[in-house]
Simulated scan of single mutants.
Amino acid sequence: MLYQPWCDKEVEEDAGKQLWRLAEREGGRAAIEAILTTRIRSHYDNLVQIADDVRELGYPGAAAILSERMPRSVRARSGELGEILATELVEEHLDFKVPVRRLRYKDGREMALRGDDFVGLRLDDQANLHFLKGESKSRANLAKATISEAREALSRDDGRPTATSLLFVADRLMEGGGERWDVGRKIRNEVASRAAPPARTSHMLFTMSGNATPQAQLDDLAAAGGNRPHLSAHLRIEDHQAFIRACYERALALGND
């Protein structure tokens, strides 16, 4: 568990829309430091492969490989940590899984991946696929323009996950075979038919910032269409930039944990 020992959560719900306010509790950050470091690494590389690099190359060599996957710029680190923490929140607190760690597949350390920031999947009792289309934003000070940018992305493609994002997930799942192949096949079928109704596609906006939940995020949720479930989550990190810097420094310090 990451969030449970780390943050207090306040939830407001109205007509299929939820607002989550997450705030660090006293001592919470220290309690999850080690697990957060491991989770960050796992989004950039398979932990088994990192361990194999350590055996083959020692800690410095393994760290050198890991550093080639992680961004160095403040902006890129902020955005990618937002995606990581959004994904972890989904899998800890929602019924969706985010089956592909997409940051492992970047074609450049500082390059942002195109498509939806995260896509969650769930199969219901009738084996119908449900989707979670997610956008994450991380800013020292979160403002209205950033919220509007995220909502615009969520609204594209009639509110469905983009075909490019879905096919990327499907391809990665089908490489594994077995049940993952079957889910990938279902995703490809959905892309072909574009038949999933809005009720099977939920939207999630995840934000992380140093300021309190801005009024713009509340207004955005209130204005969101009522034809699908919506979750808007805000994580307040008062020392936002120092927190991000420390997270990546620890993640790259292999051998010190």
Rank of each mutant, 00 (worst) to 15 (best):
T213F: 10
V169D: 04
I50P: 11
A192I: 01
T207G: 09
G28C: 01
A196V: 06
R180D: 13
R72Y: 11
H130M: 15
V100Q: 11
A242K: 06
R151T: 11
E80L: 08
A253V: 15
A140D: 02
K9T: 04
S193T: 12
P197Y: 09
D117A: 07
I65F: 04
A223C: 06
I65Q: 06
F96I: 08
E238L: 01
A140L: 00
S136F: 10
V100H: 07
M1K: 12
E26L: 00
L231Q: 05
S232I: 08
D257G: 12
M70E: 05
G61R: 14
A127Q: 15
L252R: 10
L47H: 14
V100K: 10
E68K: 14
E190H: 01
I35P: 00
T207P: 11
G115H: 06
L235S: 07
G82D: 09
A63N: 13
L121C: 11
F96T: 09
S209V: 03
V169E: 06
L167R: 03
R104V: 09
H130Q: 15
S148E: 11
I84T: 05
E68Q: 14
A34T: 03
V90N: 09
T207V: 11
I237C: 12
A233D: 14
L254K: 04
A195Q: 00
K97E: 14
K144C: 07
F206L: 11
H240D: 07
I40W: 02
Y59M: 15
N128M: 13
L66I: 01
A199T: 06
P161R: 02
A196K: 01
H234T: 01
G184I: 03
H93K: 12
R122G: 13
R109E: 12
M70F: 03
R160W: 13
F118W: 13
S232Q: 10
D257K: 10
T201Q: 00
D158K: 00
D14W: 01
Y3E: 07
A34H: 01
N227R: 09
T213H: 10
G159W: 04
A199G: 07
R75L: 10
A63M: 13
G120Q: 13
A153V: 06
R185E: 03
V74N: 00
G108V: 12
G108M: 11
E190R: 00
G115D: 05
R200E: 00
Q215W: 05
I187S: 02
R55S: 15
F118A: 15
G108D: 13
D45M: 13
P71D: 07
L66M: 04
N189T: 05
W20Q: 01
N189K: 02
S232T: 13
K17S: 11
L173C: 01
L121N: 08
K17E: 10
K106Y: 13
K133D: 08
G120V: 11
D220C: 08
D116H: 10
H203N: 00
L252G: 08
G82Q: 09
G58L: 07
V100A: 12
G115C: 09
